[in-house]
Every structure is written in structure tokens, then in C-alpha cells.
Amino acid sequence: MASEAPPTALSPAQAQEAWHSRLLGLMAARKEPIISFAVILVSWQIASFFLPPYLIPSVDVIVAAFIEIVVNIGLLGDVLITMGRIFLGLVLAFIIGTILGVFMGFTQTVEKHTLPVLHFIMGIPALSWVVFAIIWFSHVETRIAFILLAGCLPNYALIIHDGIKSISKEYLDMLRAMRPTRKQLFSKLVLPGMIPAVLTAWKVNLGLAARVVIVAELVGATRGVGNKLLLAQELFEMPKAIAWTLVLVAFLLITQLVILMLEHKLLRWRPAKQGGMAT
């Protein structure tokens, strides 16, 4: 049997090496964000010299407030409660959204009936859901879960539906020629095929849920970051308002990082991204 020209593509070991060098490159490129944040911090600090501290508190006061939250278990508990609400809401929205997305992907009737409704729901502002929730439910946690569900479920359903729709019919025909059972078709094609969409949906919804949950917590929650922000506003404590916001953002960034790491592990089969337009 005649041999073929060696491949131009990378071997797995080379690909791993390429990933490492990309990672190093990324770390070397970290100086730009450092510069950006340094400029913001310095500008803020300069502004704090000229404006009253209840408007623009100095950086060290904000840092002190931030540290107070992080080291104080009771205060950190509020952050964890908020994060817990986010995850609970997201998991619930994910489960229902996935079932809906899968059904839409497979059944045209469900797709035709549900898609317009989901698009309509997407157009409803989070604040409207807050008002509806206050009128409909008396229990605070139910209100928060409902607001998160209403805000995030359509995203999950739509993104996962798109993911399933984007699975190539060529793969489907290739597998069908081998006569798989429905279960096999789902586990060998649909499930792995929709993982990129699932990860995208989580990334999109995490940011959305964080914004929504704070608003939701303003409606009667006695604990959580939203409640603490409300207190800070009532007492005119700007350093605390900023510190609470920063703590929440920090937790979200950590969660995003976990998802990115998971994405790297689960989607290692994808070719490395090519450079974009920026030069």
C-alpha cells in the first residue's frame, strides 16, 4: 500500500505544546488590562481629592470595605446567598430550557409554537418581571427564583435550540446509515453536538443572572448583595456600595474562569481559534 504525504496538521503532542505557548502569550499580553485598570484607579483617586467622599471615596477606603466583606464570614455569607440564588435559578432555567430547546430542535410543531413566544418573552425587561413577581408571589425566594427563571430560561432554550439545529445533517445521515437506536443517536450525536451551545448559554446567562438577581433582591430580601446595596444606598455609604459590587463581580469572574476551564477541557477537539481583525 503506497504511503501518503505526511500531514500538515499538528500531532496531539504538538497541539498541546501550541496551547501552552498560546497560554504564555496570553499571560504576556496581560500588561494591557493592567495599564487600563491602573489608569482608572489613578483617575478615581485624583477625583477623590476634589470631590466629597460620599460621592467618590478614595481607593484605600474602598479596598478596606472590600477586605471587610471578604474576611467577615457573616458578610461573605450574603455574597454566597446571592451566588446560591444565581446558581439555583440558573440550574432550574437550564433544566427547563434544555428540555424545551431539545424538543424545539426535534419537533417542528413545538418549534413553530414556542419560538415566537420565547422571542416575545426575551423582549420583556427584567424590571417588569420584578413588578409581576411582587404582585404574584408573597414569598421572597419564590419571587427571586421566578425573576431569574423568566430572565434566563428563554436564553437557554434559544441557544440550545440553535446548537441542535446547527448539527450537520451530514453527520446524522452518516450515523443513520449504521442504523443506531434513538438513544444512540442522542448520545453519539446530539449530546456532544450541543455541548458548545450549552457552555455558551451558561456564559451568557451567568452575566445576565447577576444583573437580574441584584434587582430581584431589592424586592424584600433580607440578605444578599442586593439587600446590602440597598442598605448602603439608604445610609449613603458609597465605599460599601462599591465594595459589595466588586465582591460580586469578583465571584462572577471566578465562575466565568471555571466555565472557561471546563470549556477548554470539553472542547479540546476544536481547532485553535484563528486571529481576528485587530492588528
Partner: peptide, 30 residues
Amino acid sequence: FRSKLGVIFQTDRLLPWRTALENARVGLEI
């Protein structure tokens, strides 16, 4: 027709999330 037909397509139609070995054995898994 389970296991009766062996098909080679115009494009390879390899599942991108499977390695060469995992792609080759997909029919045997079925």
C-alpha cells in the same frame, strides 16, 4: 440493515469531537 452497509462519503464526515480511533469504532459502538 444494522451492520450490513459500509458507507464512505464524499466528505469524511468524521465527528469532530471524536479522535480517529473513536470515529473508526463508532459503528461498533452502535
